[in-house]
């Protein structure tokens, strides 16, 4: 074998490495994905595992020391207590109520944006929807607190037009309103995308076949917008489910969420195991939600 051939065949290390990648495309892909994948496994999954394991520990009530013996006490406390059951139910019910309300509000708005408004108006509406997202979450919740408070803007306006005053500040109604407002853009955007994708001649075809507006909406528009609706609902539902700031700021008595209990047990009571046990609950709810969404075909069209 000639030495020239030998040199070419062996090449330098970089050349050999490139050749290796060329012969094994999967290896190249693997090395590309490895860092983010490692990050994902370490930060996401490991954290989840630690969380789940910690749920079976307990804590010394006085010194706050972790006791790493296995116990089901945390889960027993959660399952047998009316309080914690009520809080879990309240959280899920609020997430559902907010999702439904947002869907009802977002649908006509997104429809108007996607199918009726001209290009200029559409840009203006986009700005209108997205602008609040540029300001901080806290600023917006505090703004609502001022609007809904007893001597706030809402009652001032009601008084101005001669209507009776309402007392909905610091209540579940207030939370419902604030959540609905805060997460509305997350429903409008995917819904807009879905509605915008419906070919215009589907509307013509439906009308041509004798369907009036409501039938077209129910049989054509709604089913075709459903993936967007479900995508949006995943946002509104999970964002509400995991929130603990709005309940503190605008909630009244009996407004605590799962997140508040978790926060109270981690930050305040220093009972991380109990918090971990309770925190598996939204995880479970979300897992079920996503399974149902998948069954409904929400991911088929993504």
């Amino acid at each position: 074998m000639s030495s020239a051939h030998e040199t070419l065949r062996r090449g330098g290390v970089p050349r050999r490495f490139s050749g290796l990648l060329w012969r094994n495309p999967r290896l190249g892909l693997g090395s590309l994905l490895a860092p983010p994948l490692a990050w994902f496994i370490l930060i996401y999954l490991a954290a989840l595992v630690v969380l789940f394991v910690a749920a079976f520990w307990s804590v010394d009530p006085f010194t706050g020391e972790l006791d790493r013996t296995w116990t089901l006490d945390n889960f027993r406390a959660i399952l047998t207590s009316d309080t914690y059951r009520a809080i879990a139910l309240r959280t899920v019910a609020m997430a559902a109520a907010v999702t439904v309300t947002d869907a009802v509000l977002a649908f006509p708005f997104a429809y108007y944006m996607a199918r009726v408004a001209g290009p200029k108006l559409r840009v203006a509406l986009f700005a209108l929807v997205l602008l609040p997202l540029w300001s901080s979450y806290l600023a917006r919740v505090y703004a609502w607190r001022l609007i809904l408070s007893h001597d706030g803007v809402l009652n001032w306006a009601l008084k101005l037009v001669g209507l009776p005053q309402v007392d909905i500040g610091y209540s579940r109604w207030a939370m419902w309103i604030v959540f609905t407002y805060i997460w509305l853009p997350f429903m409008i955007m995917p819904l807009y995308a879905a509605l915008e994708r419906i070919p215009g001649n589907f509307f013509e075809a439906s009308g041509d076949l004798g369907a009036r507006g409501w039938r077209t909406t129910a049989k054509i528009v709604f089913p075709l917008a459903l993936p967007g609706l479900i995508a949006g609902s995943i946002f509104t539902f999970s964002l509400t489910l995991g929130d603990y700031i709005t309940p503190v700021l605008v909630g009244g008595p009996g407004s605590d969420f799962i997140g508040n209990v978790v926060y109270a047990n981690v930050g305040i009571a220093n009972n991380v195991p109990f918090a971990a046990a309770y925190a598996t609950l939204p995880l479970l709810v979300m897992a079920i939600y996503l399974l149902v969404a998948r069954r409904l075909g929400a991911f088929d069209m993504m």
Partner: peptide, 17 residues
């Protein structure tokens, strides 16, 4: 979207862990 939802729950959890 599934990842987005996971991220939401996970961000809540990250603070716990």
């Amino acid at each position: 979207t599934r990842f987005a939802a996971l991220a939401t729950s996970a961000s809540l959890l990250a603070s716990l862990v």
